[in-house]
């Protein structure tokens, strides 16, 4: 079964048909809300404010109809983030909590690592709840309605569809390799074979691009795709606005008001 696992590409975290309250709101509103939340959270530096943001993001997940089990797929933390979290407690000078040889674990370093982890995971969870819970094509259309350049939206929508198709093409090629007894290992043969595999994907995509271009031209493609499904603004979207304001304002206050003895 190990081979089957190495054959698969990482799966996207979205499913598209979520029915939670957050997932029924207007796509544009959700994207803007995620962006505002992220922009605010990355500027926060106080523990209470960040804890608040993190808890809110944690609650947003079931509110969007997503299961917390999704988080286990995120557990193999991004490599880069783990390097940071491991080096920070030792590299920041401060009150020494624990010492082994030249390594000094400082309180300030630990707190800084915790702050970074809270910021990173709060934004990630909120992004999952608000945006990953929508169908990818709807995400592209909403970005277009929000004023992202038309060329970029067209490229995004086409890339979304093509990466599904090419992903399937990759699975087929990989299955064929497996049928001929290919097992990936750390050696020259594997690197050669994977290089040929990627080369073959490129060759096939050239042909695919020509077919796509002809098919689109056939349907009157003039360089952009019409943005269907405006998915009008509803009353519940207006009702969600004060809530968004409350969340952002509350976090700002937690950061900037002196709480307790701070």
């Amino acid at each position: 079964m190990r081979h089957a696992a190495s054959l698969a590409l990482p799966q996207a975290l979205q499913g598209g048909a979520y029915t939670g309250w957050l997932a029924t709101l207007d796509a544009r509103l959700r994207i803007v809300a995620a962006l505002l939340f992220a922009s605010l959270v990355v500027t926060l530096g106080q523990l209470p404010a960040l804890l608040g943001a993190w808890l809110l993001a944690l609650v947003a997940l079931p509110a969007a109809g997503l299961s917390w089990r999704l988080l286990t797929r995120l557990l193999p933390l991004a490599l880069l983030l783990s390097v940071l979290l491991l080096t920070l407690p030792f590299s920041v000078p401060g009150r020494v909590l624990w010492q082994v040889g030249p390594l000094r674990l400082s309180q300030e370093g630990l707190i800084l690592a915790l702050l970074i982890w809270l910021r990173a995971s709060a934004v990630l969870l909120m992004l999952l709840a608000l945006v990953a819970s929508m169908e990818p094509a709807r995400f592209g259309r909403a970005l277009g309605q929000l004023g992202l350049p038309r060329k970029l939206v067209t490229l995004l929508l086409l890339t979304l569809r093509q990466s599904q198709l090419i992903g399937a093409e990759y699975q087929r090629l990989r299955l064929a390799m497996r049928a001929r007894g290919f097992v990936a290992a750390s050696n020259r043969h594997t690197w050669n074979s994977l290089g040929w595999l990627m080369g073959m994907l490129l060759v096939r995509s050239l042909a695919r691009a020509r077919r796509l271009q002809e098919a689109l031209r056939c349907r009157g493609y003039r360089g952009y795709l019409p943005l269907l499904d405006a998915g009008g603004w509803r009353q519940r979207d207006s009702l969600a606005l004060p809530l968004l304001g409350l969340v952002l304002g509350g976090l700002w206050l937690l950061e900037h008001l002196p709480v307790g003895g701070n």
Binding site: Q162, G167, L197, L201, L202, S205, L206, A209
Partner: peptide, 21 residues
């Protein structure tokens, strides 16, 4: 753009492939 999208998608898929080292 159709061509650009296909190649962008291909490189995206290729960068998801795990390479043993």
């Amino acid at each position: 753009f159709p061509q650009a999208a296909v190649f962008a998608a291909t490189f995206f898929v290729a960068s998801l492939i795990s390479v043993p080292i």
